[in-house]
Every structure is written in C-alpha cells, then in structure tokens.
Design a protein around this nucleic acid. Structure first.
Lengths: 200, 200
DNA sequence: ACCCCCGGGTGACGGTTGTCACATCCGCAC
DNA sequence: GTGCGGATGTGACAACCGTCACCCGGGGGT
C-alpha cells in the first residue's frame, strides 16, 4: 500500500485528485494540505511514503518544500505536479532531489503509474520537458533579472533606478543586455520570454 | 440521472474531475473535451444535460462556448469552473446565461451539489464573487481591448496598426485612452490592471 | 436640411526607450 | 605595480510612446 499526502492549493482540484487516487487499490491518500506550511506539518505527522505537490501555493512553494525535505533528510519521495512547463522549474526540482515531475497537461492515468514508479525508487519525469531542461540555460545575471522583473511590472527606467540605487542609464543598459540575450524586440517581449522559461 | 460533458484543457484535472463526478450515483460523465472546438462538437453529438467547462482553453474559451450555446438555443445548462476570480468573467458568463460559476478554490464536494441545483433550473454562483461582479464595470471598448491585448504581448504601435488595419497614430490614441481610463502610467501597467480585473 | 456624435486619422510636443561607444572605479591575479 | 575584468555611469542618437488639439466623413435624430 502506497501512503500519499497531497498538497495543492485549489480545493476542487485537490478533492478531484484525491478521488482519482483513491480509486487505485494499492494507493491510500492519508490527507491533503492547501498550502506549503500545512503540508510541512502534515508531512511530519503522517509520515507518508510519497508527497504529491503542486508548485504554486501560498506560503511555501512545492519546490521549497522539496528542498526542505531533502535538507532534513526525511525518507519520503516527492512528486511535483504542476501547470508550468518551465525548464527552470524542473531544473530546480531535480536539484532538490524530487522523484517525479509531471504536468497537469499529462493524462490522469499516468499519475498512479508515476506514483508506483517513484515509490519503487524510480524516476518519473515528463519526457519532452526533460529534454528542454538541459538544453538552454538561463542567460541572465542577477541585475538583468531584477531589472527585467520590475520593468515587466510597468515601472520606467528611472523608477527602477531609484528602487535599485542605480542610474536610469545603467538600468537601460541592463535592459538592453537582457533584450539582446533573449532575442526580444523590447522589454515587454523579453519579460514574457523570460517568464515562460521560468527564469524571471 | 444527470448526464454531463466536461471541458477542461489540463488532462490531469480533467481525469480527476471525471473520477470525482463518477463517484456520485446520480451523475454520469458522458465524455470530456480538451479544447473549445472539440467540446462544441461533442456537445451536439452527446446532447448532455449539463456542460461543465473551464474558461481558459485553446481555440474557444468557455465563455465563448456558453455564448454560442445560448445563440443556438441549445437546451443544456452550463457551469463554469475556473481558477479566475475575475469580476469581468463572471459578468460575461451571466450575460451568456450560464447556470453556475464556481472557483477551483471552492471545495470539491460543492461541485456535485451545484450540478444538481443547476440541473433543477437553479443557479450556483460563488457568493463573494457575486458581490464584486457588479461593483466596477469594464470601462474599455472593443478597440481599446484589442489594442491593449496586443500591446501587452510586446507589439509596437505600428505593428498593431498593421494587424488591425489602423494607422499607428490611431493605435496610440486608443492606447492613450485605455491608459487614462485605467489610471495607469503606461501600457504595461494598463495591461496588467485590465488583465487582473478580467477585462482583457 | 441641419446638427451632432462616433470611428478614425493627422501632426506636433516632450518624454521614454533601445543602442552604442566610451569612461570610471574597484578588486584580484601575477 | 601593472593589467585585466566586472560593475556602474555618461552622453548622444534615432526610434518609439503618451498626450493633445484638431480634422474628416458618414450615419441618426429632429
């Protein structure tokens, strides 16, 4: 019997996944949590074999949860189930030692199978995503990332300069760099590109 | 027996919701679709009592689907189930005559109940959202919406002009209007504001 | 016929953005 | 100390953006 804890912030999806997994004779859903902190507490209380978690949750993200489990050397496996096909996310997840990384776009039948694989000590990584993850690395440095993030929120160059204690000229240089590296036509496009790669 | 068709683009969520609903003795999931066009075809083929649909789907959105059902005077009810607590979306949904509007944040148990209510001819609208919906109206007209959407994707004024057969000056006029109406400082902020209200 | 509103366009203004070449400062290797 | 590289700044230029006042043509009222 595989004992599972579920962490997912959308209540309806949480309930539906519970129903789905409970259909499997060899899987038991011990409980579920709506945010990272709750998941962390339940984890220690229930000691499940596997944690199935979303990434985007209030408080503590699924990635941070995975890192924390590794740091404390807890014995359970982790499977990430998320909407976001961002190479950067998968990369961070693998660094945190997760056993599985599935997309919500993947067929539901695969989830139970992935659970069994990971429980046996195997890995279940979405295949096409696995390719991309190691193909192109984040070309942005810290300054470029900061500046681009603020620009994407609608701030002007002088605005950003004030916030980061830089001159507006320097901000524009960083933006120009970032736009160039990403092959974008302007800051808006650059922001979108970086975001969808999980680099922001 | 309530006969249901499910439209939802994320396969895993689709499968999980199917499992959830099939647990109910008085509900039968006839089938499901991953995008709006498929849903529209399945709708005519299967003639379900109720359509349960997401909003954000490739091709045809759930809102457009609801409008089309109303226009063709098909006899089925519609329930929207979405992540987005945007007043503008609920508004458009109600205008399209939907029977229910639930958030994925709401508890899963409520879905079956909402289905029964709507099937009986009642309405199931998320309560706190219902309040906000009538508070502030969308100030944008069609042109402003189109132009703002494209601008938010990183296109320049001349770019947008070409796509919409407008002069670049006119595009800038519309953008200026939209920025003013939304109280934003530039197109980027305007885009973000409109988006989070569900007006885009 | 008249007027007025509406969608669209024009032209001009000052500010912002994207690009580039070059300057400055600091730390670190040798 | 010399030299190099990274981080930050400057100044200039062309293009683009945001704003405004105004123009044009075609419906609809009346």
């Amino acid at each position: 019997m595989i004992r599972v804890l579920l962490a997912e912030d959308q209540a309806m999806v949480r309930g539906a996944l519970t129903a789905l997994l409970n259909l499997e004779p060899d899987i038991e859903v011990l409980g579920s949590a709506a945010d990272g902190e709750t998941a962390w507490r339940e984890l220690q209380r229930l000691k499940p074999d596997v944690l199935v978690t979303d990434i985007e949750m209030p408080g503590l993200t699924g990635l941070e949860l995975a890192q924390r489990i590794r740091r404390h050397e807890l014995p359970m496996k982790v499977i990430i189930v998320t909407t976001f096909a961002r190479p950067g996310f998968l990369r961070r997840a693998l660094d945190a030692g997760v056993g599985g990384y599935l997309l919500k776009d993947a067929p539901a039948e695969g989830l139970a199978e992935a659970l069994r694989t990971v429980h046996r000590g195997g890995r279940a990584i979405d295949p096409q995503l696995a390719l991309e993850a190691w193909s192109d690395a984040d070309p942005l440095n810290d300054r470029e990332r900061q500046v681009l993030r603020l620009a994407g929120e609608g701030h002007s160059a002088s605005d950003i300069g004030t916030q980061l204690n830089l001159s507006h000229g320097t901000v524009r240089n960083y933006l120009s760099e970032a736009i160039g590296k990403l092959g974008a036509a302007n800051r808006i496009e650059a922001y979108r590109l970086a975001r969808q790669k999980g680099w922001l």
